[in-house]
């Protein structure tokens, strides 16, 4: 949903969801590569075509509108994306 509250178990909530914000998730990679493992629509599709700048914008939008007002630098996003690239 537009306010990040999700829809029951169909779309997990982004707002106040500790799983998203406790630092254990690599958000930039999650956005680019998607996520499988949950049942049904809770799977997240990959957005492989997004550029680093676009992913950076999304991550910062999420932090500012749904969490801690933290600003994540472009270079930090880039290195997080490199991390998951190397894991492949």
């Amino acid at each position: 949903m537009a306010d990040g509250t999700g829809l029951k178990k169909i779309y997990p909530s982004l707002k106040n969801n500790s799983k998203v914000w406790n630092g254990s998730l690599n958000l930039p990679c999650l956005i680019r590569e998607g996520h499988k493992g949950n049942i049904l629509s809770a799977d997240m599709p990959a957005f492989a075509k997004l550029t680093v700048a676009e992913i950076s914008n999304i991550v910062n939008f999420l932090h500012h509108s749904m969490n801690d007002q933290k600003t994540v630098s472009f270079s930090a996003i880039k290195s997080q994306l490199n991390e998951c690239e190397q894991r492949k």
Partner: peptide, 11 residues
């Protein structure tokens, strides 16, 4: 089946 699961996920 899928509709049932979808409904379950909506509680």
């Amino acid at each position: 089946d899928r509709l049932k699961m979808y409904g379950d996920n909506l509680d």
